[in-house]
Design a protein around this nucleic acid. Structure first.
Lengths: 120, 120
DNA sequence: CAGCATCCGGGATGATACTG
DNA sequence: CAGTATCATCCCGGATGCTG
């Protein structure tokens, strides 16, 4: 089911509306840390500690909060193993991979043009 | 010039680094209001007042600040006409259109799945 | 190792009034 | 009409300490 360009606008031409579902998901997924966590998981499964190290500068609090949101939205799967010491692995769900299929081209373009863009 | 997936990661596997150019542009472009302003301009040129009405809920302060950032990054062009009353028009630059070519598929997918995603 | 609870400061954001 | 200036506020997010 494809949504046309005109289909993503509100009926009166506004760009969505305050508090509509699309804006909410946008805020989750395009948040400061959301994009980076999703990108880190794109290469494969990671443990909590690995994730913390891969996403440079993220605090434990924000990692936990970001992961909870992304898991609730069904983008990330959390698997906890009953071992000592505990091991928890995070990976993208199918939905998460669908999302990243659309997000990666954007991030690659930005990464490739960032320096030029900021060179004012 | 295409950037491979591996090319968008830091040398040590981290997802970029704190304060690197890519993260900065990411923050500008994927900010709460940045995406919505860019989306509004995707359909064509808009005046200040039209933009304010199209992007539901944005304050004058945030509209001004968002537009200044996007203009400084070269995504948005500002044209001011020496008339009374004043008229100022905003539109995407070529760079802005390149960006939106990558962003639209993402936003369309999110808009099409938002309700399902939040239905927990 | 993988988190959660708590506190708290500051930048992001909003509301209002005003101006060229 | 298209902003700026100012003030008030909120909540994001960092730091720290603790637990199963």
């Amino acid at each position: 089911m494809q949504v046309s360009l005109s289909g993503i606008r509100g009926a009166h031409g506004e760009v969505f509306t305050q508090g509509c579902p699309t804006r909410e998901v946008l805020d989750h997924v395009l948040s400061k840390w959301g994009t980076l966590v999703l990108l880190a998981l794109t290469d494969g499964t990671l443990r909590w500690g690995e994730l913390r190290r891969e996403v440079d500068g993220i605090s434990e609090k924000m990692l936990a909060s970001t992961l909870r949101t992304l898991e609730a939205d069904g983008f990330v799967r959390r698997e906890s193993f009953p071992e000592v010491p505990p091991r928890v692995e995070y990976s993208l769900t199918d939905r998460g991979r669908e999302l990243m299929d659309r997000m990666l081209p954007l991030m690659e373009w930005i990464a490739g043009h960032a320096e030029e863009i900021l060179a004012r």
